Amino acid sequence: MPVLLVIPARHASTRYPGKPLVELRGASGESRSLIRRSWDAAMTVTGIDRVVVATDDKRIRDHVQGFGAEVVMTSTACRNGTERCAEAVANLGIAPEIVVNLQGDAPLTPAWFVEDLVAGLRADPGADVATPVLRCSGRMRADLIADRMAGRVGGTTAVFGHDSRALYFSKEVIPFAAGDYGDDDPSPVFHHVGVYAYRPAALAEYPAWDEGALERLEGLEQLRFLERGRSIRCVEVQARGRQFWELNNPEDVPRLESMMREMGLR
């Protein structure tokens, strides 16, 4: 199987328990769960051979099966989505060329983000992992800074070298950039989009590694790869007029619903 897409979902989120089952109302007024909207987003991606939801919770399993999606059960021992993806692949007993992790809290992820991501990993044989980055507009940068000033953990930012290999990821807004930017002006900050494409060998090794110090401090699972000397390719994607945000906190629900209304997403 060339490409397997896994949507990891857990009910016992530290910051937002029950998050996958939270309802989001779209532009048409229709309410659907976060995990359903993430599944809907996955089904618009071309070049994906199979899509599964990976969870350790029967409530999520039953809900997902109720709208016709495929579910693979994983253990409660998974510490993050990457470990859950690794266990899902092992439990399925398959050998894909690439495994995509579309995290279940990013229902506004456009299909081309994932398509460009898979193409980027295929074009870079030396990379173990690939992940998308989106140049922040002045408005998005301001939203990230406002979250941090309010003590909320919002989006993640990324910095990378001339070869597009990741140098660091942080929940702080990096790099520091003095000055103001208009709402529609490009800024020097790149928002890390919470999607990953893994080489199966690197993914299979990941759960056996101890959690790294930086991973623990930032709460960012991808840092374990960097701390182990593995390469992550940052693939710059284009918004094409679409807004993007992840559901990290309860306060993000009205923000996502507002974005869906503005973009006409049902």
Rank of each mutant, 00 (worst) to 15 (best):
A213R: 12
E257H: 02
N248C: 09
R228L: 03
L214A: 13
D210G: 11
L203H: 01
R255H: 08
G241P: 07
G241T: 05
P207A: 13
V237Y: 03
I232E: 10
Y206F: 12
L247K: 11
Y196V: 10
H192R: 09
Y206M: 06
S258T: 14
P200Q: 03
L217E: 14
V237L: 05
E218K: 13
Q238Y: 09
D210I: 00
A213L: 07
Y196F: 15
R199S: 08
E236D: 04
H191K: 11
M259I: 15
V235G: 07
D185H: 07
P188S: 06
N249R: 15
L247G: 07
E211I: 14
C234P: 06
S231C: 03
Y198W: 09
W245F: 09
Y198H: 15
R216W: 05
F244W: 07
R216Y: 03
A201F: 01
L223G: 03
P250M: 08
P200K: 06
G194C: 10
E215S: 14
E218I: 00
P254L: 08
S258D: 12
N248W: 04
R230N: 13
E215D: 09
G219V: 04
D252R: 12
N248A: 13
Q238A: 11
V195S: 11
R230L: 14
S231P: 05
A197L: 01
A239F: 02
